[in-house]
């Protein structure tokens, strides 16, 4: 067999899979988004921009997503950074790996079960009951944006910690020593040396979390109780309940465009920030 023949044989199954399960379905979504809704749901071929004109009907879902996805990313960053810093710079070298694995492991377990755990904790007999014992009555946590935010941070924290850790861990610790030898206070060393040098890790972590949050369905469905809903929840409703495939496809296509658009804008911003320093490369 020639090398060319060998490569064709090796790539054929994966290529066919990508074509049938990814390229064609995504093309169908795009085509359907310009179609019309059938009388009994489903889809009727057409070429109209009606579905896109109708997008404001789901404005609330887009608004929630565009507020809570960045907010959730920021909250995860604020909680993850000190932990990543501790693990990379301060923690005992013998325990480093174990401690890191302990952060990563939950991410690979069922997000469904982990979000479910918070129904338990935030529900009436969980934390609110504990608060009532110390005299703070009538606290409602479940089915609020706050509950969704907690679920987000809980679910995606590992994804934020990991890239920042890797970045800080590789950082040459002699730079920090040099900074303090030259008389900088620890705080100044952090702001002028550590933080700028860890920008690529922050950028990667934020990107990963943000991408996943844009398509989130489970956390708002479980902890938002139908009151806090994302585009993902609107999509489930449109495809599985009201079977409005044409409009649903337009919402899905818009979500993907919004996601790619914000990711591109974000990458540009990071590149501009990084361009001032040659040693800061993205990812």
């Amino acid at each position: 067999m020639t090398e060319r023949g060998r490569n064709i044989f090796l790539l054929a199954p994966a290529g066919a899979w990508f074509l049938v399960m990814l390229v064609i379905p995504l093309a169908v979504v795009l085509i359907f988004s310009f179609g019309e809704r059938g009388p009994a749901g489903g889809y009727v071929p057409a070429f109209t921009l009606e579905q896109y004109a109708n997008l404001p009907a789901r404005w609330a879902a887009f608004k929630n997503t565009l507020i809570l996805a960045p907010a959730g990313t920021l909250a995860s960053l604020l909680i993850a950074y000190p932990l990543a810093y501790y693990l990379a710079v301060r923690a005992d070298a013998r325990w480093k790996t174990v401690l890191l694995v302990l952060v990563i492991v939950p991410f690979w377990t069922s997000i469904l079960i982990r979000s479910y755990a918070w129904i338990f904790l935030l529900g009436g007999r969980g934390i609110p009951a504990l608060l009532a014992m110390i005299g703070i009555e009538d606290v409602r946590l479940i089915n609020t944006p706050f509950a969704v935010l907690i679920g987000i941070v809980y679910g995606y924290l590992p994804l934020m910690v990991f890239p920042i850790f890797v970045n800080l861990d590789r950082l040459d610790k002699r730079l920090l020593e040099a900074s303090s030898d030259l008389g900088a206070s620890p705080w100044r060393t952090f702001l002028q040396v550590t933080l700028p040098m860890s920008l690529p890790g922050i950028a990667t972590g934020c990107l990963l979390v943000f991408i996943l949050l844009m398509g989130e369905f489970l956390i708002p469905a479980i902890l938002g109780g139908g009151k806090v809903f994302f585009v993902g929840n609107a999509l489930v409703d449109l495809f599985l309940q009201s079977r409005n495939w044409a409009f649903g496809s337009a919402v899905a296509a818009t979500l993907v465009v919004l996601m790619l658009g914000s990711v591109t804008a974000y990458m540009r911003l990071i590149r501009r920030l990084g361009a001032q320093r040659e040693d800061v490369a993205l990812m």
């Binding site: 995504l26 169908v28 979504v29 991408i211 496809s249 979500l255 993907v256």
Partner: peptide, 15 residues
């Protein structure tokens, strides 16, 4: 990169 939910939808209507 594409959100899992979009993969799910695309597969559903595509298939």
């Amino acid at each position: 990169m594409i959100p899992g939910i979009v993969i799910g939808i695309a597969t559903l209507i595509g298939l």
